[in-house]
Nucleic acid binder design. Sequence first.
DNA 1: CACTTTGAGATGTCCGTACATATTAACGCA
DNA 2: TGCGTTAATATGTACGGACATCTCAAAGTG
Lengths: 261, 261
Amino acid sequence: MQQASGAVARGSGRPLYREIADDLLAGIGQGIFPVGTLLPGEMELIQRYQSSRHTVREALRVLEDMGIVQRQRGRGTLVLSPEAQPAFVQMVKSPEELFSYPADSAFRVVAEEAVTLSGSAAQRLKAVKGSRWTRMSGPRTFESGMPVCWTDVYVLPEYATIARQLGGANSRPVYEIISKAFGEEVQKIGIEIYASSFDEERAKALGVDVGTPSLCLCRRYYGNKGRLFEISVSEHPAQNYSYSLEFTSGWQNAGHWSWNK
Amino acid sequence: MQQASGAVARGSGRPLYREIADDLLAGIGQGIFPVGTLLPGEMELIQRYQSSRHTVREALRVLEDMGIVQRQRGRGTLVLSPEAQPAFVQMVKSPEELFSYPADSAFRVVAEEAVTLSGSAAQRLKAVKGSRWTRMSGPRTFESGMPVCWTDVYVLPEYATIARQLGGANSRPVYEIISKAFGEEVQKIGIEIYASSFDEERAKALGVDVGTPSLCLCRRYYGNKGRLFEISVSEHPAQNYSYSLEFTSGWQNAGHWSWNK
DNA sequence: CACTTTGAGATGTCCGTACATATTAACGCA
DNA sequence: TGCGTTAATATGTACGGACATCTCAAAGTG
């Protein structure tokens, strides 16, 4: 185990900034720098390690890239997490890859109405009870007419005008249309997956038997300032659909996306 | 669109290293610096942008953190990707979080046998046809006896000895036991989710009705050198189980995990 | 020809300095 | 008391220099 927050070995073959980063990490792990508090300032660390500001900042950058600390100009270096956390990350290039929808399928809206979420509906959608949404429902089908799934899309009432764009067959995801039309940048996506079976109405619409097992995907889209602006619930016939994920060992990067004010 | 690879605006309110990074990015996007080639050296970039090495390196670091370029001492800066790829990443602290298994549940092995995968079984598990595995099957239940799911675990024959450790009730994940006992470090985890319904045998074992909708999770664990060493398939009663994910906007970090030799 | 050595060029590490800007708390004033 | 101002402090940006280490190719050597 490393000694915490004192002098570090020089000429150990490892870069000095790495030694400093490890030492700070040990200090955080041992509670010398508790989570939620600020690390000593750069000037103090320079004295403590008898190093230069450049080297100290390099060490702090390592910790930041590992998600251990968060740096903020004018405030200091906040300790976020007690230890180096090797993590499993899944990366997709765009939210579209979270869909796994066939490219040649289209969503056809057959019903649009304003809804106020009751308690049970709000719980199922993980939304606020009593909140108001505009719901658009319909099947997603291949060009050939073969059904892909039944979809309920809930959007904020102020975005209900997109229903006009969805009037005809549309293959683009709803979140993408909203994002471009209203400047909502998707910051977070929540996905919940569960199994169910088709009720009579939907089974009829998709041309499958009543009671057919189904895979349901509920996706929640959070935009600017973390505001929930869209919820979509899709119900797929089980035999035609599965959902795949892949996680790779790595570290989180708290990095550059937050640099823009 | 930015001009590519010439002088950049100073005093634009944005940091100079960001301007340089954007300019290089534009150059990469326009094919001035094709993917697979090396970017101009730091000294040349210093002259081109009339800046200091520190600033140029800061710009290159931004591109590296975004996964656009890869830097290598003694060689140069390699262009990996043509454009900035905003990505959605999901992070979990350990593979355990991928389970969502209740902590007070236990897996009880009721059958263990050597199997050779037929074509259909291999396709379903996404494993190699004809490969040999040791399969352990049984229910996972709460301490109270209430069923959580039915699980089939496939492990490499050389790891079959862990069945001894699983003889009694065991709440620890199988991958964790293998990891500790045999030194397999989990590098990648693949998950596939689909819906089904319980057949007679399993319905009886779990005490649910035949035909009850179920949610199936197939997990594949890849260890050292990317070798598939465990597959687990769990079938959950639909009404008791759902699977949640969350993705946050960010960038990939090609960074510090590779620093250790 | 095969192998070793050398050297140029590239990035990595580390030191110094100065000024800019955001944050926060203390201060002064109405 | 309430609010705007100011000052101290923190990190961010940018400049300069020096030496270390790695890579690759060219030159040298047997």
